[in-house]
């Protein structure tokens, strides 16, 4: 199952390494990753695709939320499925 995760994070050095480290440290591969600025220069938006087991990725999402530099985590997977069904 592919997961589409989007994060709002502090725009600081080391934040990307922290997030990637948390995911790779649990043996998951990041398939796509995009980082960009937001209207607020102190924050960045990250979007990534991570294939993996639902239960474990739910844990990963929760763990990401625990990082001090991470302000918001959303798993878009469910929403995307809804959209596809409507199509």
């Amino acid at each position: 199952m592919k997961h589409f995760i989007t994060l709002l994070v502090e725009n600081q050095p080391g934040v990307l390494a922290r997030i990637v480290g948390l995911i790779s440290g649990r043996g998951y591969n990041i398939e796509t990753l995009n980082v960009g600025p937001t209207d607020d220069p102190t924050l960045s938006r990250m979007t990534m695709t991570v294939p993996g087991d639902d239960h474990v990725l739910e844990q990963v999402t929760k763990q990401l939320y625990k990082l001090v530099d991470v302000i918001e985590v959303t798993d878009l997977t469910a929403r995307r499925e809804d959209a596809q069904e409507r199509d």
Binding site: P13, G14, A17, R18, G21, G25, L67, V68
Partner: peptide
């Protein structure tokens, strides 16, 4: 040091 300790701390800082 921040790289090495990232996985064994609740949070860490490199002060600029």
């Amino acid at each position: 040091t921040t790289g090495i300790t990232r996985a064994v701390t609740k949070h860490n800082y490199l002060v600029h």
